[in-house]
Design a protein around this nucleic acid. Sequence first.
DNA 1: CCTATATTGTCCCGGATAAAGACAAAAGGC
DNA 2: GCCTTTTGTCTTTATCCGGGACAATATAGG
Lengths: 405, 405
Amino acid sequence: MRKIDLENFRIATRGTSREINRQIALNLIRTHQPISRADLARMMKVRRGVVTVLVNELLEERKVFEGTTGEAPRGRKPTFLYIESRNRSVVAVDIRVSRTWLQVADLLGRPLAPTETMATEREPKRMVQALAKRIMRLIEEHPEAGACEGIGVAIPGMVDSRTNRIIHAPTLGWRDVEIDQALARATGLPVQIENSGKACALAQMWMARGEEAQGDLAFVSVSDGIGVGIMIRGEIVRGRHNIAGEFGHVPLSIDGPRCSCGATGCWEAYISNLATLSRYFGRDLREGGPISAEMQAFTIEDLIARARGGDGRAIAALQATARYLGLGLASIVNAIDPSRLYIGGEIVAAWDLIESTVREAMAERALTPHNMMTEIRVVALSEYPRLRGAVALVAAPQFAAPAVA
Amino acid sequence: MRKIDLENFRIATRGTSREINRQIALNLIRTHQPISRADLARMMKVRRGVVTVLVNELLEERKVFEGTTGEAPRGRKPTFLYIESRNRSVVAVDIRVSRTWLQVADLLGRPLAPTETMATEREPKRMVQALAKRIMRLIEEHPEAGACEGIGVAIPGMVDSRTNRIIHAPTLGWRDVEIDQALARATGLPVQIENSGKACALAQMWMARGEEAQGDLAFVSVSDGIGVGIMIRGEIVRGRHNIAGEFGHVPLSIDGPRCSCGATGCWEAYISNLATLSRYFGRDLREGGPISAEMQAFTIEDLIARARGGDGRAIAALQATARYLGLGLASIVNAIDPSRLYIGGEIVAAWDLIESTVREAMAERALTPHNMMTEIRVVALSEYPRLRGAVALVAAPQFAAPAVA
DNA sequence: CCTATATTGTCCCGGATAAAGACAAAAGGC
DNA sequence: GCCTTTTGTCTTTATCCGGGACAATATAGG
């Protein structure tokens, strides 16, 4: 039951019904392709006549195309409909401190070329220039991908959803930076920019099929920082300043270790990669002492390898992180009660080692038996969730529900 | 940007546009009454002809009525439209351990009779009988209120939103209890039942005017327990099992005092009335020792009175609670980024004493300057937020946006 | 009192849409 | 060759928004 926003509503006009039904049809084709007009009509519970009209419009707009004719046990054979994803591509960009990843994908998120990387320039203007150059080259090198419909950029920081400015990206050291318009000018393409946690959550919702596409979800990315994106009723939870979802800075213990945000005892201070490595090297989490050269050169992947090799201290460090991960997940579960949690980040490579600890910790604090059992899905690094998120930034709006009432 | 729920969508039919526009008109009348057809047309940016048709339907359904003619500097005088709230009433019920409150109100939440109370029976079946009897008497005693359209019940516990069963109400000691159907049978009226935090949030959103009706909000009720309700995009955040919003059991410190939920260090364990009183009486929060007879007879109102009288220990206890209240609010602000926070409960009687402490603590952990400044509104006990919430349970659905796509 | 002007509310017609059903097209079985 | 089944298109009808005309009502000014 939704209240109508009386400061910002949209009257239904003559075209509204058509718009709604066309978008439903488009989405059913997206999730069920290949599909015939007759099947569409059955799913939508309308007459085939209506579907014919809707599909004709979608064909004319080149949003779908007619493919092969299918098989039927009797009667006329159906002509299959598909989303027009040929000749329509998206460039996805994932900017992080360590490196920047790029990918060309189609509108449904399927990669059209191997993932590439480039160095991340710390100076925003130089970064935009380098990025634009790289994107143009990428597009030229892949003419088979077809016309690029836009660039999606995932950023480890807060983005103003109205102006698209980067308000603050702590790890990059960017504050109040505008890159979307500069990038759009340099490439001549529309640019969508969003916080990476929110982008990941968006992709999980839009690219899921069947059961997984249902219900609310939270995406938790465990990396240098903790990125969280929340989808409720098919929408990103943004809040007033588009900074909702910062569960990384909800405390586990208000007098816990110091966090990069200035507060103490944030979840992030317990489970970031730095926190896990610090535990292994015996660095004082609470005071945040100097980082040794040895630790500097050591990655979370190295630590996981040592844990698999039987290194007791590595195992202990991982298990401690796992426990705190589970305790924090319980906070999300109690606050949002999502249907599913997605976990990404380097640490999922050790999921088989930590899963039981995570679940136990979560069960400790989850309020109800149902809550304790909340499904957890691991998103492997090889799935490039942030790049998929960046694709979704461009692709999802084309399939979104029309705003009405 | 919303994703269409493909398992549960609604096609637009011939009547859909009309349904949408009629509901927009109804809501504009609700928030702007008295209002003329011509003004409605201007607000909706449609021709007056369309409004005439919509309003005629609303008149026929007895949802609005034509009142006096207004004044105009020139030209034909407008006939004002009003929501039909005469002859349509709601019975609101707020069940709590200590007592049960009742009120008769009109559809817009305006009280039609003084609030009444009755004892709360601990046995559900007996409670339903007593409640039904009391409600029938209340309706008989107030024939001027008009036909009762339903009973709204606010409960300090978790309610299954599908079946309307009370899953667990810890303070009442109820577990898996069904009272809505029994109450409906006994009274012959439709019954809506909901968690009191969610009901309060619903009322704040639906009964607000102007600026206050905009944006997302969270309602925090500080009492025996901590009830939280969250409204995002005009909808209650329910989650999968209708238990979302339990920020009361998000920790401030995982090794903090024991909480009634079984976990330790929950926000509730720091700021519930019991926690504040325990601080005053020097009772060990961490171990949760026995409650002295003196403390048993002492209420939070008594403590506030002593603080106002200059009792240093009372002031300290209140300030400690205020600080923890602010720290927990920061969690909500970081997680949801609402436009406004509403605070209810007995402690708001001391708001002038604790406000600065609350805001300082909130600022300590809020992530951005904007976040720190999140508006806080105090809801006095005399406004009976839970009763208003119970009214909203019955009234709001009549004004809700039609579910489409 | 009459006229011009302004405002409100109603009515009618045209174009767009969904609903229902008829019809053509296509394929297999007897 | 005819019947049945299935797909997809086309036509008709009722509903609804969009636009404009028009009546009703009130004020200002001569």
